[in-house]
Amino acid sequence: MPLSFNHYYIRRIWIYLFCAIALLWAIGPIYWIFVSSISTRMELYATPIKSWFPSEPTWDAYIRLFQGGGKYRGGDVSPTEGLMWKSLFNTLFVSIVSAAFVTFLSTNAGYVFARMKFKGKGVIFFFLMLMMPLPLWVSIIALFFMISNAGLIDTLTGMILLFIVFLLPLGIWLMSTFVREINPEIEEAAIVDGCNRWQLMRWIIYPLSKSGMAAVFLVSLLTVWNNFLLPLIFTRSPDSQMLTVVLSLFVGQYEVAWEDMAAAAVVTMLPPFLIALFFQRFLIRGMTLGAVK
């Protein structure tokens, strides 16, 4: 029937039109920051007609950022090289270590809550979960003085400790739901064969909850990487500052050229971007549950 044939194609055209608008809105800005970071200065500052596709793409901004830094008008060199390398390392280190700890601790605890019966289990679970929806802010003031007194202000150890504690409730909650989905008969068989609980964890639970652990690891990694408030408050020197803070300082404090800042922004968003692109199926469930909590 020609009528429904036409109708089908018109509908398709509308769908793709809306998709194009949606993509322009969602990734247009990301595209532009990337283009800005690889454009030559001439093109980037061209007005009023902008060039949307760089005619001579260049990595100069990245090289300036990581090697030597750009020149100030006064002739001094901006300190971006040290700041970028150091904060890149700090961010990688803190996010990987915290995410690994959270994954390990919450898989163990998730197993305990999913499978074992003991007195006070409900109370302990409630105790660990209760503060999850509380905004971080209400405890930050006292926490700041505690961390100062413990000598952990402005240290990576302090950052890792804080991130672990704030991510634990979500991790435990996610892992207890993931472990519940494992078929209990496998564990029973292992117990009959004389496995103790630790062996059971090592040989049965960890291998079988790999995808759940990947979800918790990636959600934690992303949360730490993207966080700004904690490093803003608990670090103050370049030795322990993280990328988000350094980027905010580029915007406000240092006279960094736009194309260099764009390159720094691309570096800061690259890991989340890649994780979101390639591991999204792990993330959606964890982040949705995490937000609903």
Partner: peptide, 10 residues
Amino acid sequence: LLPWMLPPIV
């Protein structure tokens, strides 16, 4: 879904 997963500070 990308914008949601990037650092808000960026």
